[in-house]
């Protein structure tokens, strides 16, 4: 309807990204997916979760910036979206503060949830517990 002289903007004056950008972002996403998949086979131990989350965050940022157009959108929409992450962090943070610290201040009264499931005597039993999964791979008969 509206004649648009500038190919970078549509009839409402919003930015139009070149097709090439979308495919480049897609390629980057594939690379990161491959990376996170490959890394999952490397035994990184406690570092594996932060690495996986870092990669996921980079991927999410790419999707938000280019596919969801946050780069060219009104700044306020970015604030709106980031605020949801903030309040999610509040929810996680305070709840974990409680769950993780129930036994901290008063170890007798506040016998922690974590300790209930993971008795303090763990060091002695740690080795069998580690080995158990491998041994149990064959379905236990009669269960």
């Amino acid at each position: 309807m509206a004649a648009h002289s500038d190919p970078h903007y549509d009839g409402l004056g919003h930015h139009i990204s070149p097709v090439r950008v979308y495919w480049l972002v897609f390629a980057a996403l594939l690379v990161f997916t491959g990376l996170t998949y490959a890394v999952s086979f490397a035994k990184l131990g406690p570092a594996s979760l932060p690495v996986a989350m870092l990669v996921a965050c980079i991927k999410a940022t790419l999707v938000c910036t280019f596919f969801m157009h946050l780069k060219y959108d009104e700044r306020f929409n970015l604030l709106v979206f980031v605020s949801s992450l903030f309040f999610m962090a509040v929810f996680f943070g305070f709840t974990m503060l409680d769950v993780a610290s129930r036994a901290l201040v008063d170890p007798i009264e506040g016998y922690g949830v974590y300790e209930q499931y993971n008795p303090p005597a763990a060091p002695a039993e740690a080795a069998p517990a580690e080995a158990a999964p491998a041994a149990d791979e064959a379905p236990a008969a009669g269960h």
Partner: peptide
């Protein structure tokens, strides 16, 4: 049954 620390905060 909330932790004392969380309750204080």
């Amino acid at each position: 049954g909330e932790s004392s620390l969380a309750a204080t905060v």
